[in-house]
Protein backbone atom coordinates (compact mmCIF):
# COMPACT_ATOMS: atom_id res chain seq x y z
CA UNK A 1 0.00 0.00 0.00
CA UNK A 2 1.30 3.37 -0.92
CA UNK A 3 -1.16 5.96 0.31
CA UNK A 4 1.18 8.84 -0.42
CA UNK A 5 0.53 8.27 -4.10
CA UNK A 6 -2.52 10.51 -3.91
CA UNK A 7 -0.28 13.42 -2.94
CA UNK A 8 2.26 12.98 -5.73
CA UNK A 9 2.45 14.29 -9.29
CA UNK A 10 -0.46 16.65 -8.95
CA UNK A 11 -2.77 13.74 -8.12
CA UNK A 12 -4.09 15.55 -5.09
CA UNK A 13 -5.21 18.63 -6.98
CA UNK A 14 -6.60 16.36 -9.70
CA UNK A 15 -8.83 14.69 -7.12
CA UNK A 16 -9.65 18.04 -5.54
CA UNK A 17 -11.06 19.37 -8.79
CA UNK A 18 -13.24 16.26 -8.74
CA UNK A 19 -14.32 16.99 -5.20
CA UNK A 20 -15.11 20.60 -6.10
CA UNK A 21 -17.21 19.36 -9.02
CA UNK A 22 -19.03 16.92 -6.74
CA UNK A 23 -19.84 19.73 -4.31
CA UNK A 24 -21.01 21.97 -7.14
CA UNK A 25 -23.25 19.37 -8.82
CA UNK A 26 -24.67 18.21 -5.52
CA UNK A 27 -25.52 21.66 -4.24
CA UNK A 28 -26.92 22.89 -7.54
CA UNK A 29 -28.90 19.67 -7.85
CA UNK A 30 -30.14 20.13 -4.31
CA UNK A 31 -31.33 23.68 -4.94
CA UNK A 32 -33.20 22.40 -7.97
CA UNK A 33 -34.66 19.53 -5.96
CA UNK A 34 -35.94 21.94 -3.30
CA UNK A 35 -37.68 23.93 -5.99
CA UNK A 36 -39.19 20.83 -7.56
CA UNK A 37 -40.01 19.42 -4.13
CA UNK A 38 -41.88 22.57 -3.19
CA UNK A 39 -43.90 22.50 -6.41
CA UNK A 40 -44.73 18.80 -6.10
CA UNK A 41 -45.63 19.18 -2.42
CA UNK A 42 -48.04 22.03 -3.14
CA UNK A 43 -49.36 20.04 -6.08
CA UNK A 44 -50.22 17.19 -3.74
CA UNK A 45 -51.81 19.57 -1.24
CA UNK A 46 -53.76 21.41 -3.92
CA UNK A 47 -57.54 21.48 -4.03
CA UNK A 48 -57.38 20.97 -7.80
CA UNK A 49 -57.53 17.36 -8.85
CA UNK A 50 -55.35 17.91 -11.92
CA UNK A 51 -52.53 19.35 -9.77
CA UNK A 52 -52.74 16.44 -7.38
CA UNK A 53 -52.67 13.91 -10.21
CA UNK A 54 -49.66 15.48 -11.94
CA UNK A 55 -47.79 15.60 -8.64
CA UNK A 56 -48.61 11.96 -7.89
CA UNK A 57 -47.42 10.82 -11.32
CA UNK A 58 -44.20 12.77 -10.95
CA UNK A 59 -43.60 11.32 -7.53
CA UNK A 60 -44.29 7.74 -8.49
CA UNK A 61 -42.07 7.88 -11.57
CA UNK A 62 -39.02 9.56 -10.09
CA UNK A 63 -39.17 7.67 -6.82
CA UNK A 64 -39.65 4.28 -8.40
CA UNK A 65 -36.99 4.25 -11.10
CA UNK A 66 -33.24 4.11 -10.41
CA UNK A 67 -31.29 7.34 -10.64
CA UNK A 68 -28.81 5.62 -12.95
CA UNK A 69 -31.60 4.76 -15.38
CA UNK A 70 -32.92 8.32 -15.24
CA UNK A 71 -29.43 9.66 -15.89
CA UNK A 72 -28.83 7.61 -19.00
CA UNK A 73 -32.35 8.23 -20.25
CA UNK A 74 -31.78 11.98 -20.03
CA UNK A 75 -28.21 11.94 -21.30
CA UNK A 76 -28.57 9.47 -24.15
CA UNK A 77 -32.31 9.58 -24.62
CA UNK A 78 -32.88 13.28 -25.20
CA UNK A 79 -30.54 13.53 -28.23
CA UNK A 80 -32.07 10.44 -29.79
CA UNK A 81 -35.70 11.28 -29.12
CA UNK A 82 -35.74 15.05 -29.51
CA UNK A 83 -32.37 15.86 -31.09
CA UNK A 84 -31.50 17.97 -28.08
CA UNK A 85 -27.77 18.45 -27.70
CA UNK A 86 -27.12 17.38 -24.13
CA UNK A 87 -24.25 18.57 -21.99
CA UNK A 88 -23.15 15.91 -19.54
CA UNK A 89 -22.99 18.07 -16.43
CA UNK A 90 -26.25 19.87 -17.20
CA UNK A 91 -27.97 16.52 -17.58
CA UNK A 92 -26.36 15.44 -14.35
CA UNK A 93 -27.68 18.37 -12.36
CA UNK A 94 -31.15 18.07 -13.85
CA UNK A 95 -31.31 14.35 -13.15
CA UNK A 96 -30.10 14.79 -9.58
CA UNK A 97 -32.62 17.56 -9.01
CA UNK A 98 -35.55 15.67 -10.49
CA UNK A 99 -34.76 12.45 -8.68
CA UNK A 100 -34.15 14.06 -5.31
CA UNK A 101 -37.09 16.43 -5.81
CA UNK A 102 -39.44 13.48 -5.47
CA UNK A 103 -38.06 12.69 -2.02
CA UNK A 104 -37.82 16.32 -0.96
CA UNK A 105 -41.47 16.84 -1.88
CA UNK A 106 -42.46 14.30 0.74
CA UNK A 107 -40.26 15.94 3.34
CA UNK A 108 -41.85 19.31 2.62
CA UNK A 109 -45.41 18.01 2.46
CA UNK A 110 -44.97 16.06 5.68
CA UNK A 111 -43.63 19.11 7.50
CA UNK A 112 -46.40 21.38 6.23
CA UNK A 113 -49.22 19.07 7.26
CA UNK A 114 -47.58 18.56 10.65
CA UNK A 115 -48.10 22.25 11.48
CA UNK A 116 -51.26 22.68 13.52
CA UNK A 117 -54.10 23.97 11.36
CA UNK A 118 -54.79 26.56 14.03
CA UNK A 119 -51.75 28.42 12.70
CA UNK A 120 -53.41 28.82 9.32
CA UNK A 121 -56.68 29.84 10.98
CA UNK A 122 -54.98 32.41 13.19
CA UNK A 123 -53.26 33.92 10.17
CA UNK A 124 -56.44 33.99 8.12
CA UNK A 125 -58.40 35.50 11.00
CA UNK A 126 -55.96 38.42 11.12
CA UNK A 127 -56.57 39.09 7.44
CA UNK A 128 -53.61 37.34 5.81
CA UNK A 129 -54.38 35.58 2.55
CA UNK A 130 -53.86 31.85 2.22
CA UNK A 131 -50.54 32.39 0.40
CA UNK A 132 -49.27 34.97 2.87
CA UNK A 133 -50.11 32.73 5.81
CA UNK A 134 -48.34 29.84 4.15
CA UNK A 135 -45.25 31.95 3.42
CA UNK A 136 -44.97 33.91 6.65
CA UNK A 137 -46.41 31.58 9.25
CA UNK A 138 -46.66 27.95 8.18
CA UNK A 139 -43.56 27.42 6.01
CA UNK A 140 -41.06 29.03 8.40
CA UNK A 141 -42.26 26.73 11.16
CA UNK A 142 -42.38 23.74 8.84
CA UNK A 143 -38.85 24.50 7.65
CA UNK A 144 -37.33 23.65 10.99
CA UNK A 145 -39.03 20.29 10.92
CA UNK A 146 -37.67 19.71 7.42
CA UNK A 147 -34.06 20.33 8.37
CA UNK A 148 -33.11 16.87 9.63
CA UNK A 149 -34.67 14.96 6.71
CA UNK A 150 -33.35 17.54 4.23
CA UNK A 151 -29.85 17.07 5.59
CA UNK A 152 -30.33 13.36 5.01
CA UNK A 153 -31.40 14.07 1.47
CA UNK A 154 -28.39 16.30 0.78
CA UNK A 155 -26.07 13.60 2.06
CA UNK A 156 -27.80 10.98 -0.10
CA UNK A 157 -27.49 13.24 -3.05
CA UNK A 158 -23.76 13.72 -2.49
CA UNK A 159 -23.28 9.99 -2.58
CA UNK A 160 -25.62 9.54 -5.53
CA UNK A 161 -23.71 12.17 -7.47
CA UNK A 162 -20.98 9.56 -7.99
CA UNK A 163 -23.34 8.01 -10.56
CA UNK A 164 -22.71 11.06 -12.74
CA UNK A 165 -19.40 9.37 -13.58
CA UNK A 166 -21.43 7.03 -15.81
CA UNK A 167 -22.37 9.90 -18.09
CA UNK A 168 -18.78 11.16 -18.25
CA UNK A 169 -19.10 14.00 -15.75
CA UNK A 170 -15.70 14.66 -14.20
CA UNK A 171 -16.75 14.49 -10.58
CA UNK A 172 -14.83 12.91 -7.74
CA UNK A 173 -15.50 9.26 -8.50
CA UNK A 174 -14.71 9.62 -12.18
CA UNK A 175 -11.49 11.50 -11.42
CA UNK A 176 -10.55 8.66 -9.10
CA UNK A 177 -11.15 6.09 -11.83
CA UNK A 178 -9.13 8.13 -14.28
CA UNK A 179 -6.30 8.26 -11.81
CA UNK A 180 -6.46 4.52 -11.14
CA UNK A 181 -6.33 3.83 -14.86
CA UNK A 182 -2.99 5.61 -14.87
CA UNK A 183 -1.32 4.36 -11.69
CA UNK A 184 -3.22 1.14 -10.84
CA UNK A 185 -3.32 2.09 -7.14
CA UNK A 186 -6.92 0.95 -6.82
CA UNK A 187 -7.30 0.55 -3.07
CA UNK A 188 -5.31 3.62 -2.14
CA UNK A 189 -7.30 5.93 -4.36
CA UNK A 190 -10.70 4.45 -3.50
CA UNK A 191 -10.03 4.62 0.23
CA UNK A 192 -8.89 8.22 -0.10
CA UNK A 193 -12.01 9.06 -2.11
CA UNK A 194 -14.21 7.34 0.45
CA UNK A 195 -12.64 9.49 3.16
CA UNK A 196 -13.27 12.62 1.11
CA UNK A 197 -16.98 11.71 0.75
CA UNK A 198 -17.08 10.92 4.44
CA UNK A 199 -15.63 14.29 5.44
CA UNK A 200 -17.81 16.23 3.02
CA UNK A 201 -21.01 14.57 4.22
CA UNK A 202 -20.13 15.09 7.83
CA UNK A 203 -19.64 18.77 7.14
CA UNK A 204 -23.17 18.82 5.68
CA UNK A 205 -24.36 16.96 8.75
CA UNK A 206 -22.83 19.52 11.09
CA UNK A 207 -24.25 22.45 9.12
CA UNK A 208 -27.70 20.85 9.34
CA UNK A 209 -27.40 20.45 13.09
CA UNK A 210 -26.19 24.02 13.62
CA UNK A 211 -29.11 25.36 11.58
CA UNK A 212 -31.53 23.24 13.55
CA UNK A 213 -30.17 24.60 16.79
CA UNK A 214 -30.32 28.15 15.49
CA UNK A 215 -33.98 27.81 14.57
CA UNK A 216 -35.04 26.36 17.89
CA UNK A 217 -38.24 27.85 19.21
CA UNK A 218 -38.57 25.89 22.43
CA UNK A 219 -41.52 23.89 21.14
CA UNK A 220 -39.49 20.93 19.97
CA UNK A 221 -40.03 17.47 21.39
CA UNK A 222 -36.57 16.78 22.69
Amino acid sequence: MDFLVVFRNGNFSFLMTGLAATVFYTITGFVLSMLIGLIVAFGQLSKKKVCRTVAEIYLSWFRSTPLLVQLVLIYYGLPILFHIDTKDWVCGIIALGMYSGAYVSQVIRGAIVSIDKGQMEAGRSLGYSQGQTMRKIVLPQAFRRMLAPLTNELISLTKNSSLLSCITVAELFRQANTLIAKNFKTMEVYIFVAILYYILNNIFGVIGKVLEKKLRTGEELE
Binding site: D116, G118, Q119, E121, A122, G123, R124, S125, L126, G127, Y128, S129, Q130, I137, P140, Q141, R144, L215, T217, E219
Partner: peptide, 24 residues
Protein backbone atom coordinates in the same frame (compact mmCIF):
# COMPACT_ATOMS: atom_id res chain seq x y z
CA UNK B 1 -64.05 37.59 -3.50
CA UNK B 2 -61.04 36.55 -1.47
CA UNK B 3 -59.39 39.96 -1.37
CA UNK B 4 -62.45 41.65 0.04
CA UNK B 5 -62.85 38.89 2.60
CA UNK B 6 -59.26 39.30 3.78
CA UNK B 7 -59.77 43.04 4.17
CA UNK B 8 -63.01 42.51 6.09
CA UNK B 9 -61.36 40.00 8.42
CA UNK B 10 -59.07 42.76 9.62
CA UNK B 11 -62.13 44.24 11.30
CA UNK B 12 -62.79 41.07 13.25
CA UNK B 13 -60.37 39.87 15.91
CA UNK B 14 -60.48 36.23 16.89
CA UNK B 15 -59.24 34.39 19.95
CA UNK B 16 -59.02 30.60 19.82
CA UNK B 17 -59.29 27.90 22.40
CA UNK B 18 -55.78 26.69 21.59
CA UNK B 19 -54.21 30.19 21.43
CA UNK B 20 -52.49 29.58 18.08
CA UNK B 21 -49.63 31.95 18.74
CA UNK B 22 -46.99 31.88 16.00
CA UNK B 23 -44.31 29.65 17.47
CA UNK B 24 -41.43 30.99 15.39
Amino acid sequence: EEKKLNAMRQKVGMVFQSFNLFGH
